[in-house]
């Protein structure tokens, strides 16, 4: 009575990764193989629960026979592939991708590991010029309701929110990329205010945002009043109290208060995604709010 084997390929593919021969299951990506070999690979637009869009290009590696570098997040391994993740070209590109982003986007609220890579790859965004003289994504924050804050000067255009809102999860398509080039941006139709858009406030965009561009209003408000304290937060896994689907919730609490809700992306029920009730319907736990 068990689930039939989902062809977890028995076939192994042999590749050379940084001069070492390793074998990984057929169908693995280069990134999977790197993880298997404990090689730290920076990623921005990749997420376990989303289809790789390979737009950030920070995970690139060198593959023998390829003129350009190759995004490790989406490229499947092939027999005999010779891959280098630590060459000068790779390090230059990774350093530059982070440098380009850091010179145009506020990254002070980005995931800790992103800020770590900027340091470890030696990015120096300042040499692009004074931020007042170069193009940046500086713009006012969008607060249009009591649940979401959209702070697009922190947006690196990783497309994760678009994918989560669209055909990787929610299928609501309230937001999409609009414009082109440096003017490309995440937008509703005609930049309509979020409550007037198709948004159903599932918060799955917030769930996948790596840079703090999309956050719970609770988090935004606490950050503004300097009370947001991740080191003093704990995460408790539980099950949503509403319908009978049984979604897994991670309750982030600080000082006996729920401050935000996420869901584990590796759980078969939710795959990291929730609905408005699961994501925001917790406020009755603190009715005085």
């Amino acid at each position: 009575m068990s689930e039939p084997a989902k062809n977890p390929s028995e076939t192994l593919v042999e590749i050379t990764l940084n001069d070492k021969k390793i074998s990984a299951p057929e169908g693995s990506t280069i990134l999977d193989a790197c993880k298997q070999a404990n090689i730290d690979t920076p990623t921005l637009c990749w997420a376990e629960n989303l289809t790789p869009v390979n737009v950030c290009r920070v995970c690139v590696v060198e593959v023998e026979g390829s003129r350009a570098l190759v995004p490790s997040c989406s490229r499947p391994i092939e027999e005999g592939m010779v891959i280098s993740t630590d060459s000068e070209r790779v390090n230059t590109s990774r350093r530059m991708v982070l440098e380009l982003l850091a010179s145009s986007v506020e990254l002070d609220r980005a995931d800790k590991e992103i800020r770590g890579w900027i340091t470890s790859y030696g990015s120096n965004p300042d040499r692009m010029g004074n931020s007042s003289e170069i193009k940046t994504s500086k713009q006012p924050v969008k607060i249009q309701d009591d649940l979401y804050v959209r702070d697009y000067e922190r947006c690196i255009l990783c497309y994760k929110c678009v994918e989560a809102c669209g055909d990787d999860a929610q299928h609501t398509f309230a937001i999409a990329t609009a414009g082109r080039g440096f003017e490309a941006r995440i937008s509703t139709e005609f930049d309509a205010e979020l409550p007037d858009s198709a948004c159903v406030y599932c918060g799955n965009c917030i769930g996948v945002c790596p840079t703090g561009a999309l956050v719970f209003k609770t988090e935004h408000d606490m950050r503004e009043e300097n009370s947001w304290d991740p080191d003093n937060q704990k995460v408790t896994e539980t099950i949503c109290g509403f319908c009978g689907v049984g979604c897994n919730l991670e309750l982030h609490t600080q000082d006996e208060k729920i401050v935000k809700v996420t869901s584990p992306s590796d759980h078969s029920v939710t795959e990291g995604h929730l609905c408005i009730k699961g994501r925001f319907g917790w406020q009755h736990a603190h009715p005085e709010n």
Partner: peptide, 18 residues
């Protein structure tokens, strides 16, 4: 409705934009 649940005892306590 999407953002509410039963007699609203719990869901009535958050401010849903929809």
């Amino acid at each position: 409705a999407l953002d509410s649940y039963n007699t609203g005892v719990q869901t009535g306590k958050y401010n849903s934009p929809i």
